[in-house]
Lab assay of single mutants.
Amino acid sequence: MATGGRRGAAAAPLLVAVAALLLGAAGHLYPGEVCPGMDIRNNLTRLHELENCSVIEGHLQILLMFKTRPEDFRDLSFPKLIMITDYLLLFRVYGLESLKDLFPNLTVIRGSRLFFNYALVIFEMVHLKELGLYNLMNITRGSVRIEKNNELCYLATIDWSRILDSVEDNYIVLNKDDNEECGDICPGTAKGKTNCPATVINGQFVERCWTHSHCQKVCPTICKSHGCTAEGLCCHSECLGNCSQPDDPTKCVACRNFYLDGRCVETCPPPYYHFQDWRCVNFSFCQDLHHKCKNSRRQGCHQYVIHNNKCIPECPSGYTMNSSNLLCTPCLGPCPKVCHLLEGEKTIDSVTSAQELRGCTVINGSLIINIRGGNNLAAELEANLGLIEEISGYLKIRRSYALVSLSFFRKLRLIRGETLEIGNYSFYALDNQNLRQLWDWSKHNLTITQGKLFFHYNPKLCLSEIHKMEEVSGTKGRQERNDIALKTNGDQASCENELLKFSYIRTSFDKI
């Protein structure tokens, strides 16, 4: 039985969820670079991206490699990797027998973001014989899940209580170790020597080791999670996991709180800001991140802002960003909400898709409305799209047979046209069989910064309504002859009103 693990408890099935942008060198404390989270699957090609990484700022997932063999891993080693800020997950990587050479110096898994409450997941690794993470000293947050690894031993010899604050939620089941077939031998045991430290858990006094050649490092209890030197002297209180010299914040392997210019500090002093819960960055760093993602459509890219001495992905609820200094300031009234469309555009074809934009005031991208039916549609669209004030790209209304009016965009005031449909149009209306009105132009103002209007096959939309939009939106004169079809717009509506004058002759039985 794995020490510190839980057996036999019912657990939810383990679901495996399925960018080499360097964020800056980590400095003297770390020998390499800070790398983003990685999802490495199918083959070993991307694994080489770990070569210079000291910190993975995010998670590391290595999974679904069915053609790899043990010899493929023999020359692979990433000794610079010290810390993973989120979680480490391995799933069905064939041929991998140990992690001792792959990650010989991995010391800390912070667990800032977890995989279903777990910071370390080893699942269905069919050839893994031992973990071998002999320098792993601290899992700051989260638990361990090690399950269905039929060859995995050296679990009962690990004292997880020396690595985690609590072992109650560890789930370590259905491994070879369960069948008591392992016969784990710690260093020196074969020669009758006791080389590794022994600890007591559940009444068992057991030597602690990761492999037959690597003991588990056990520091004096007084050192807590700070770690200790090879001689057993406690590291500085700002260290986490390990250090090369005692009581020196510049000799830590990793930091308990924050890293700044080669030393570990309790908090980031001005003019620095907390970033990702582990390091200090200056304003320029946060500003660069903001600008890199301002026009990016890459998933996970955030326009970072500053709030409460932190550089964070977005302002919290009730705050909006001051564009001059990136500071989050309290909103006066309802907060603006910028919604970034991942692929640059979004099609609204149902109430469900409209709900995804609920509360958005600025759309960074283009909207395509293609709704053919739905219950209580006008009210639903207004509830979900009615706060949109600005669209950076274009607005396209296409084959939306259920629409009679666009009044559900009740606050839309600006279409920038930074991206144009077919390279020309910022407003595009095609084949809307029941569209009769755009907006009530006596109450609604709309500016279209650039781009043209396109109207074709809107049989109940009168040309007068379209011409009014040209005047109000500032697009009059931009359109070419064929942009607004004269014969297919309003051709099934009563669009022309003329005053009919009647004269009559009164007659009676005795007068003409």
Rank of each mutant, 00 (worst) to 15 (best):
L152W: 01
E231S: 12
R279G: 07
C264D: 04
G183F: 15
S54L: 08
P269G: 08
V34I: 04
Y304F: 14
Y87P: 05
E71L: 04
K100F: 13
T211F: 02
P79K: 07
T140P: 05
F275T: 00
P316W: 01
D247E: 07
L332M: 12
C293K: 02
C53N: 00
E71W: 02
H28I: 06
E147A: 01
I139G: 00
C196W: 00
A198T: 07
T211M: 00
K67I: 02
Y118A: 03
E238N: 13
S323R: 02
L136M: 00
T85S: 10
C255W: 01
V200L: 04
E207T: 07
C264Y: 02
D184Y: 08
P79C: 02
N322L: 08
L174V: 11
N325P: 04
Q276D: 14
E147T: 01
G58I: 00
D261P: 05
S225T: 12
I158D: 03
H59I: 02
V34K: 10
V144N: 01
P313S: 10
P334G: 08
K292S: 15
G188N: 04
L102T: 04
Q287N: 07
G333F: 15
M125K: 00
C293F: 05
I163D: 01
K148S: 02
G132F: 01
W210A: 02
L133Y: 01
C219H: 01
R74H: 14
R162D: 05
L64Y: 00
K294T: 07
P336T: 04
Q204L: 07
K251V: 05
R110M: 14
G318F: 09
Y118L: 00
N105F: 04
F103W: 06
G203A: 11
T329M: 10
T140R: 05
E266K: 04
N322R: 04
D288T: 03
G142Q: 01
Y118P: 02
I84R: 00
P104G: 03
T250G: 13
I122Q: 01
C243T: 00
F116V: 02
W210C: 04
Q216R: 02
F275Q: 00
R41I: 00
I201A: 09
Y134W: 14
C223T: 00
M137P: 00
G183V: 14
L289C: 09
D261V: 11
C301L: 04
C153P: 00
G318T: 02
H28R: 04
Q204Y: 03
Q299V: 13
N52P: 03
N295S: 09
F78W: 03
R279C: 04
L99Q: 00
L99P: 00
N105H: 05
G300D: 03
D165W: 12
G241D: 01
S317K: 04
V200A: 09
R263N: 14
I201M: 14
V144S: 03
D248I: 06
P104A: 03
K100R: 13
D169C: 05
N135Y: 00
H307N: 13
F283L: 12
W278C: 02
T194D: 05
C243P: 00
H226D: 11
N309S: 12
T140D: 07
Y259A: 14
F103A: 00
G188R: 07
I201Q: 08
H212A: 10
V93H: 13
C239L: 00
H236I: 02
C264T: 00
C223G: 09
I222P: 04
V206Q: 15
P249I: 05
R162A: 12
T221A: 11
D184C: 11
M321Y: 13
R208P: 11
K191H: 08
N257M: 02
N308D: 12
D277N: 15
L90F: 05
Y171F: 05
R298V: 06
H302Q: 14
V126A: 01
G132D: 06
I62E: 00
H236K: 02
L106N: 00
S237D: 10
E49H: 14
I158H: 02
P36K: 15
C239M: 00
I222Y: 02
S98H: 00
K191P: 05
M65Q: 06
E207V: 13
F275I: 01
C255N: 02
F283H: 12
I139H: 00
L81V: 05
R92V: 02
M125G: 00
F275R: 02
D72T: 14
H212F: 08
L240V: 07
R69I: 06
E180M: 14
P104E: 01
K251M: 13
L332G: 15
L289P: 05
C280K: 02
L155S: 03
Q303M: 13
R41P: 00
I84G: 02
L164M: 14
D261N: 10
C301F: 05
I201G: 07
V121T: 07
S225V: 06
C335S: 03
I158F: 04
F275W: 10
S324V: 10
L233G: 09
